[in-house]
Nucleic acid binder design. Structure first.
Length: 279
DNA sequence: GTTGCGTCCTGGACGC
DNA sequence: TGCGTCCAGGACGCAA
């Protein structure tokens, strides 16, 4: 399930492949979540950016193509005419590149397409105009890796709700980009119980540090592949072998050797250490 | 406005 | 081998 590190890995790989190239044609699976792909046809990609889990392709005219990968979404650039994939939900035919030496300078040619693949169809696409917002993107908090987000600001954001700490992180409201895997990892590192409903300033600062650490390591390792996630190059991430908490229920805590416990919180599988992370 | 729950969606794991 | 059931979870809609 693509979270911030997975989306950032994809963004870094896509940028040199797409910048300066025109989306000369588009196709979309006939569902309202994917048909907005057609609105991007004819535009030229001038930026490839990310906000939380959203990937944004600047279309050169002030509009953005907003891509959310959901749980099983992925993006890849493939030669046109390769065998069909039933799980491709949209694709954009690419031209040979712009005149500024970006994609063209890298040797890309016509006959390629950007493909959006999403087996479970939890992802979504949108084209937004300047000032418009799309779903959660319009109301989510600052990006988790945004250096402008300070400890006091994060603490104040958490004070705005009495929901469980992990539920708040997954809501994207206090901070954007965190999903189930990295929430469990960060809470374990910060020694905070996922169902806590309040934190001190010190605990909030520790949690923000832990979030940034696990997300940065995730980016450095090319993301976490548990099942579906693949990079633009079709490779698996490497971070799944370095997880301390998520998915290790029943195994010993790497700090105190107590068996990690699994609970269901907010309908999400949650793993934590009952000794290190007291409520 | 906030909170909690149901829904969407399908491949894979598992039990019989 | 084949079938049925359960699980995974991000975002959104709806009711309380």
């Amino acid at each position: 399930m693509p979270e911030l590190p997975e989306v950032e890995t994809i963004r870094r790989q896509l940028e040199p492949l797409l910048r300066g190239r025109r989306l000369v044609d588009a196709w979309a699976f006939p569902h309202p979540k994917f048909t907005p792909a057609l609105d991007a046809a004819g535009a030229t990609v001038d930026t490839v950016s990310r906000e939380g889990k959203y990937l944004l392709l600047g279309l050169g005219d002030g509009r953005d193509l907003v891509i959310h990968l959901g749980m099983t979404g992925s993006l890849r650039v493939r030669p046109q005419g390769e065998p069909g994939d039933p799980y491709v939900r949209a694709h954009w035919v690419l031209d040979g590149g712009g005149p500024d030496g970006t994609a063209a300078g890298a040797g890309h040619g016509a006959g390629e397409a950007l493909e959006y693949r999403d087996v479970r169809r939890f992802g979504r696409l949108a084209v937004v105009r300047p000032g418009e917002h799309h779903g959660t993107l319009g109301v989510q908090g600052p990006d988790a890796l945004d250096p402008a987000l300070t400890d006091p600001a994060f603490w104040r954001a958490l004070q705005g709700s009495r929901r469980a700490l992990k539920t708040q992180l997954l809501s994207q409201r206090p901070i954007a980009g965190v999903g189930n895997i990295y929430a469990d990892e960060a809470l374990w590192r910060a020694r905070l119980h996922p169902a806590r409903r309040s934190v001190t300033r010190t605990q909030a600062a520790a949690l923000l540090d832990a979030l940034r650490a696990v997300l940065t390591e995730g980016v450095e390792n090319g993301g976490t592949t548990l099942r579906d996630y693949r990079t633009v190059a079709g490779e698996r991430g490497r971070n799944q072998t370095r997880l301390d908490c998520y998915g290790r229920a029943g195994e010993p805590c790497r700090r105190c050797a107590t068996p990690l416990r699994r609970i269901v919180l907010d309908a999400r599988s949650t793993t934590f250490c009952p000794v290190c992370q007291r409520r």
